[in-house]
């Protein structure tokens, strides 16, 4: 009966992003917010494990107080309880500090067997949080898991890597990050939505976690986000000139730079 922690994040719906045509800045205000895509897979996987092996799944989220509807959605899907880590002091946290906040909360929640994360978020998409959290809590990690089975007190997972599939095993406690191929997240029924209102939501601030406000947020983060510039939403219309071989090479390099290959 594994005790599970699911880390999930709230993000803006990237399909609704708009660009301020004057400043070229990305406008994220007033846009629908949602649970980051792969985190739905992490939540779903925890619920499936629970359905097969019992246990409990607690959702943990570092986010704004306004992320309550996302928490409710996660609870409606089937998480047993949630823990919202929210404090104005957390603003501007990078991976290192978000992991520190999550680690403090997870320790406070008590012993666990598994932590599930999404492989990467839909906004930052750095795929860093899982490994950073595993390091903080001194856990083995299985990233990019596309299939997970529980055998007694160990996890067997298929990892989807660049060059093939790797099947790995690790004993509890362990951290996994999951890909979107792992499952199809369920949709909650109305009854489940209504029942979610009765589930427990813990709310902790920096002080509750014993974290000094200097160690978190902008002050505590080694990475500083200076600017987010929108790409022009219009097509770029760049002609790749030169000989065939040159044009082809430039094409491949540009596509790699864009991160689309």
């Amino acid at each position: 009966m594994p005790e599970m922690i699911v880390c999930f994040k709230e993000v803006v719906d990237e399909r609704e992003l708009k660009v301020n045509p004057k400043t070229q800045e990305l406008m994220t205000e007033g846009i629908t917010r949602k649970i980051s895509d792969f985190d739905l897979n992490a939540i779903e996987e925890a619920i499936r494990i629970k359905e097969m092996h019992g246990g409990r799944a607690t959702g943990v989220i570092v986010g704004l107080p306004e992320c309550k509807p996302s928490i409710k959605k996660a609870l409606s899907m089937g998480l047993d309880r949630a823990c919202l880590l929210s404090d104005p002091a957390f603003a501007g946290s990078d991976t290192l500090t978000v992991a520190a906040i999550l680690a403090a909360a997870i320790r406070k929640l008590g012993p666990f067997d598994m932590i599930l994360c999404g492989e990467a978020s839909t906004d930052g998409f750095s795929a860093q949080l899982g490994p950073s959290l595993a390091e903080r809590l001194d856990l083995p990690q299985i990233t990019a898991a596309s299939q997970v089975t529980i055998e007694g007190n160990q996890v067997v997972a298929e990892r989807s890597l660049d060059d093939g599939i790797e099947v790995v095993e690790a004993s509890f406690p362990v951290l996994l990050s999951v890909t979107k191929e792992i499952n199809k997240p369920r949709l909650a029924t109305l009854k489940q939505i209504l029942a979610a209102s009765k589930k427990e939501v813990l709310e902790w601030k920096a002080a509750d976690l014993g974290l000094s406000t200097d160690a978190v947020g902008l002050q505590g983060s080694p990475i500083v986000l200076k600017r987010v510039a929108a790409f022009r939403m219009e097509r770029k219309n760049i002609r790749l000139e030169g000989t065939l071989a040159e044009a082809a090479e430039r094409a491949i390099r540009e596509l790699l730079r864009e991160g689309v290959l």
Binding site: F125, S126, P131, S132, T143, A144, P222, I223
Partner: peptide, 25 residues
């Protein structure tokens, strides 16, 4: 930033107490 490199870098950075930026172009 292979899949393996990406699971390694944040772990190394966290152990060193420093930051990591992913997929820098």
């Amino acid at each position: 930033a292979t899949k393996r490199g990406k699971e390694l870098a944040p772990r190394v950075a966290t152990r060193l107490g420093t930051g990591c930026a992913a997929d820098c172009i």
